[in-house]
């Protein structure tokens, strides 16, 4: 289980994440929603340790996140980050070297489904192919926590189905997924809980089916309510 306790991140005078408290339970898929700059990415980076919080703490199974938690946490950033001299194969080997839960076989299978070959150089990949590579290498791990930042960005329609399938494939009772996306309706079917972030605050976190049953509202409806004009004021 992942616990975020009053997590705050400030860059000088700007606040990226403001006293966010959120518990992520295993077996659930959390849809992180909100416009750019609302703090979703920064929050994810803090969970994986790339960014250090200004205050507050993040605990994984009771321990502060750090070296050990990174064994179990797989993060996919929005930006490309592989070394420019690497080929698709090199990227796989790198992950295999550092992550015990990485499966080269799964990697090859996912790459195949996305029409990527091992010999392609990271330098020459188009943005769409890079997006697919990032997903492939992340989902080829059998992690306990997946943090996917805009996994469907820049991916064509057919490949999107593939990725959604990949995501569904890893869902298990002991696995937690945190997925952020602008494609709210795509995410809605697959997620259990919708987490809305606005201007560095956590506005709301609620069960998706629950929202439909109790309020007759879909996530898309809530999204419009919260972020649209006449939405919830902070």
């Amino acid at each position: 289980m992942l616990e975020c306790k009053e997590v705050t991140k400030k860059y000088g005078r700007k606040t990226a994440v403001d006293h966010v408290s959120l518990n992520l339970e295993p077996g659930r898929v959390y849809a992180m929603l909100g416009p750019n700059g609302s703090g979703k990415t920064t929050l994810m980076k803090m969970v994986v340790g790339l960014v250090k919080p200004t205050s507050g703490e993040i605990l994984y199974n009771g321990q502060p996140v750090g070296v050990e938690s990174r064994r179990d946490i797989a993060y996919m950033s929005t930006e490309p980050y592989f070394y420019s001299w690497m080929t698709v194969k090199d990227v796989g080997k790198y992950y295999q070297d550092f992550f015990e839960d990485f499966s080269m076989e799964r990697y090859e299978r996912i790459l195949n489904q996305m029409d990527l070959t091992m010999d392609l150089k990271s330098k020459t990949l188009s943005s769409g192919m890079m997006a697919k590579l990032k997903i492939a290498v992340t989902m080829a791990r059998r992690a306990k926590i997946y943090l996917l930042d805009e996994p469907l960005n820049g991916i064509d329609l057919l490949a999107r189905d593939e990725i959604v399938r990949c995501v569904l494939d890893v869902i298990a009772p002991d696995v937690t997924l945190m997925v952020s996306s602008h494609l709210v309706d795509e995410l809605e079917k697959v997620a259990d809980v919708a987490v809305f972030m606005k201007e560095s605050h956590l506005v709301m976190a609620c069960g998706i089916e629950q929202m439909r049953e109790e309020k007759g509202k879909s996530v898309v409806d809530m999204y419009r309510e919260i972020y649209g004009h006449g939405g919830i004021e902070q």
Partner: peptide, 12 residues
Amino acid sequence: KQSYMLFLTPHS
């Protein structure tokens, strides 16, 4: 961003 390569690994 290549820093991610190093700092995502389970190393201190």
